[in-house]
Design a protein around this nucleic acid. Structure first.
Length: 465
RNA sequence: GGCGGCUUAGCCAAGUGGUAAGGCAGAGGUCUGCAAAACCUCUAUUCUCCGGUUCGAAUCCGGAAGCCGCCUCCA
């Protein structure tokens, strides 16, 4: 069985076959750079990172585009409130975003286009939509006419007339022919301040959805393989984007739609008013290590709501410590003659890992394969030790898995002189069998986050994650 | 009101007809000066509940309850 994804468009698991063999074109909806992204954003971005990494693991060459939304109601309002230019405002949060990507060990996408740099492309699409009868002008703005697009509502599984019964109705609906119609181009108004473009469409700014149509087609062409985002984007954003792109191209543009579920915090939707709203930086401040955060956000299947809790963070930390301890055990294992067992264990683990990941990125099964491998290998280490060749094979295997997981490399830590001295003092105390003193020093170090292990090869230390 | 999803041990979670993976936490043991790590053993006769289909169901069907999401700019 090969790679299978659940396609939101069909609601079915489908065998993955890229348009061009060996190559995958991937469009992933990126952040609106108006604030520090929260861990829910990163849950989705990490799902996309896992997807990208696994596609590469499978041997595909991947071209990924992640857009940066740097003009919309929120960015305009926030920059005006601060009294600084929009570009200066969004640059601040773009920078923070890329810092976070580095912190969480993202495998970077090929393109991170910004909306404000693609207004020309957006205008071109809108002009064609106008010409082809998919759009109309009203009050200086331009709207997409959803009734002109057959199959509108297929992605979110709505019928257009069901939208009218919806609870919320846009405030400016009087300008539109139908409530479901949405803005492609927004005429300038006072609230926009100095944020506008003078274009053949008039003075104004683009609507939200059009940027993704423009940037996806610019970098990936008018047919590409996978489009992803959070479930909240299914409607309206992705459906509207689909309506625009497909009408423009004259055929379906996206082959597979994948959506990740949201993250909850302590069982509740994350919100600033509930005080359960966390950015990546908040978690770092609380002392959680980046790989543990990555583990926690990636280890629940992307189509399941992830209930983020501090208990869960602690569990993630524990699991990772086991993986790091294992790698140390491998390194320090006593020398043994080469056997076939390690080869078998690796083979089995790899098969299971791939089989699980092939099934719509079943990360739980894939991680179980890894942990089974850890236990099996630990047994071998206890009974026999490892040959240098086996150590090498294990290292290569873990490295291969880490090209997908991205959290297996323990962050390098250095200890300061004081800690080094305490460890030396404790060793002295131990060699003189002054165990009271030795235990006291060990406790002291533990409070500093340094864990000691007395092994036949001497005392080893590690830093708590 | 409409549409959709979820409910498996203290917590997270895999498992889509054949008798409950894995992780964290916990208990006991081996090892250790004591620990830590590791290993071994144990921790759900049972999968929200009630019916049904079947030789057999966590898995399929029907019903109920609870939680959650979307229904026009929130990943």
């Amino acid at each position: 069985m090969g790679l299978v994804f659940l396609n939101t468009f069909t609601r079915k698991k489908e065998a993955f076959a890229p348009l061009e063999p060996g190559k995958v074109e991937l469009y992933t909806c990126g952040p609106t750079v108006y604030d520090f992204p929260h861990i829910g954003n990163y849950r989705t971005f990490l799902f996309e990172d896992l997807l990208r990494r696994y596609l590469k693991y499978k041997g595909f060459s991947v071209v990924q585009v992640m857009n940066l939304t740097d003009v919309d109601d929120r960015t305009i309002a926030a920059s005006r409130k601060e009294g600084i230019p929009l570009s200066e405002y969004t640059a601040r949060y773009s920078k923070a975003f890329f810092e976070d990507l580095k912190t969480l060990n993202f495998d970077l996408a090929e393109h991170y286009p910004a909306a404000t740099e693609h207004v020309g492309e957006m205008v071109e699409i809108i002009q064609k939509l106008l010409k082809d009868g998919y759009a109309y002008e009203s009050g200086g703005s331009i709207y997409y006419k959803i009734s002109a697009f057959p199959g509108y509502g297929t992605l979110p599984h709505f019928k257009p007339d069901e939208l009218k019964a919806g609870a919320r109705v846009a405030a400016d609906s009087y300008e539109k022919e139908e409530v479901g119609d949405f803005a492609l181009w927004k005429a300038w108004d006072e609230k926009d301040g100095d944020v506008f473009w003078e274009t053949p469409l008039g003075k104004g700014r683009p609507g939200w959805h059009i940027e993704c149509s423009a940037m996806s087609m610019k970098y990936l062409g008018d047919r590409f393989d996978i489009h992803t985002g959070g479930v909240d984007n299914i409607f309206p954003h992705h459906e509207n984007e689909r309506a625009q792109s497909d009408a423009f191209a004259g055929h379906p543009v996206v082959k597979y739609w994948l959506h990740s579920e949201h993250l909850l915090v302590e069982g509740k939707k994350m919100s600033k008013s509930l005080g359960n709203f966390y950015t990546l930086r908040d978690l770092l401040t609380k002392g959680f290590a980046p790989p543990a955060i990555r583990y926690a956000l990636i280890s629940v299947h992307y189509r399941l709501p992830l209930n983020f809790t501090f208990e869960g963070m602690t569990a993630a930390r524990g699991a990772l410590e086991r993986l790091y301890d294992f790698q140390r055990s491998v390194k320090n294992a006593k020398e043994a003659r080469e056997g076939v067992e390690v080869g078998h264990a690796i083979h089995k683990a790899r098969e299971t890992f791939e089989q699980e990941m092939d099934d719509d990125l079943n990360i739980s099964g894939a991680l179980a394969a890894l942990f089974d491998f850890v236990r099996e290998t630990n047994r071998l280490i206890i009974s026999y030790g490892l040959s240098p060749k086996d150590k090498e094979k294990i290292g290569e295997f873990l490295c291969k898995l880490d090209s997908v997981l991205g959290f297996l490399k323990e962050p390098s830590v250095s200890i300061d002189l004081q800690v080094e001295k305490l460890i030396a003092q404790r060793n002295d105390a131990r060699s003189q069998k002054d165990f009271a003193r030795s235990d006291q020093l060990r406790l002291e170090l533990e409070k500093m986050g340094i864990i000691l292990e007395d092994t036949p090869q001497g005392t080893k230390w590690k830093k708590r994650l």
